[in-house]
Design a protein around this nucleic acid. Structure first.
Lengths: 210, 210
DNA sequence: GTCTATACATAGATAGAC
DNA sequence: GTCTATCTATGTATAGAC
């Protein structure tokens, strides 16, 4: 369903952003030239500067749309549930939906950690990343303190192991008829839930499966 | 303990490779210039070409040392055990040890997937990656068919979720007195073991914890 | 084996015609 | 709003002196 593949005809600006995102995700920021972006969008590189101030200005459009969407999805999850288990599954699903809607931005975010860290203009990326971390650590710590998740591994490590595994599904997952997006989401949810489960939760899981 | 921080004084060639690896891991291949590598090694960029044919030739040294070390560690694990559980824990530990010994190469490998895929000279990287995949999928499928690991999620997905989580520990793990490398290894081993466990294995885990 | 100097290609970005 | 043309900086790599 990939929301990135919108049905309506794209405006010039949207077309440039979409083609740029694809190149940036594949070849990296430093590895993508404005000439390539122009070629992919069917115009000369100089003409890009009529619509954007710089290469980074194009990247801004890609990244801010992604990060705003992700955080908005988290906001809805946090607002609608107060049960720690439901929150966990909700965050997994929200993350995968945002990744599915913005696969290129997800890849750029993963691959350009250093660039976003050292380039002043990308403060909003760092702030959003911090907020994502807060949401997850908060949710995981709540589950730990209620005895739903294990307390023997720091919540921060649970988060980081989940995040990199989950985010990088974008690098290998392609939906098929036999294994659709919803299957992936359900599998990830179950896998990490079992991984993070306290002994009490494991006991409940086993009772359920009998 | 990081084996990368060898005690002996480095030769010129080794110094160049080490400094280059650090830059390549941080700024990416396209984002690192030969001038920067020269600066970091204390010589002019032109002088690099006395020892190496090209920038890629330096990358070769970094990547092949890493991949050979990783596969050698896997070979030892596979040779020394035939129990599926021991093999699993052995592979986790071997991976983390290789990552710990070659943190920069691990980062480069993770971030430059596309470059290694499309550049002909890096066939050995692709071959090694394929071998890593084979080893893991083989080990996981054996554990599934013995009923030790769950069969409801494709072994390939178990592998990919583990790989990206485990490999990218290099991006955030820094050993401290309170939480050393061995702790991380033990935590990762337990976490993914529980994640992958079949109901039978979970039952055994619970019995054990009583 | 490193330096000076430089060749040659390509990078991001700009000016002005159309 | 795109094109032609080009500026300037920087990229990898090389040649030859020391």
């Amino acid at each position: 369903m990939s929301a990135a593949a919108s049905q309506q005809p794209l405006g010039r600006r949207e077309l440039i952003v979409e083609r740029a995102a694809e190149l940036l995700a594949r070849k990296g920021i430093a590895g993508t030239t404005v000439r390539e972006i122009g070629d992919a969008a069917g115009i000369l590189s100089g003409s890009l500067y009529h619509q954007f101030d710089s290469k980074d200005a194009i990247i801004d459009v890609v990244m801010s749309a992604y990060l705003e969407d992700l955080l908005e999805r988290y906001r809805v999850v946090l607002e609608q549930t107060d049960d720690v288990t439901a929150t966990f599954h909700g965050l997994v699903l929200a993350s995968l939906r945002a990744i599915d809607a913005h696969p290129q931005a997800t890849l750029i975010y993963q691959h350009e950690v250093h660039y976003f860290r050292v380039t002043p203009r990308y403060r909003y990326v760092r702030v959003a990343g911090e907020r994502v971390r807060e949401v997850w650590i908060g949710a995981l710590e709540a589950a730990v303190s209620e005895g739903v998740f294990r307390g023997d591994i720091p919540a921060r490590h649970l988060y980081l192991l989940l995040r990199d595994g989950l985010w990088l599904t974008v690098r290998w997952f392609r939906p098929t008829a036999a294994y659709a997006f919803d299957e992936l989401a359900a599998d990830c949810s179950r896998l990490y839930y079992q991984a993070f489960a306290s002994t009490r939760t494991l006991r409940a899981l086993l009772d359920q499966s009998n």
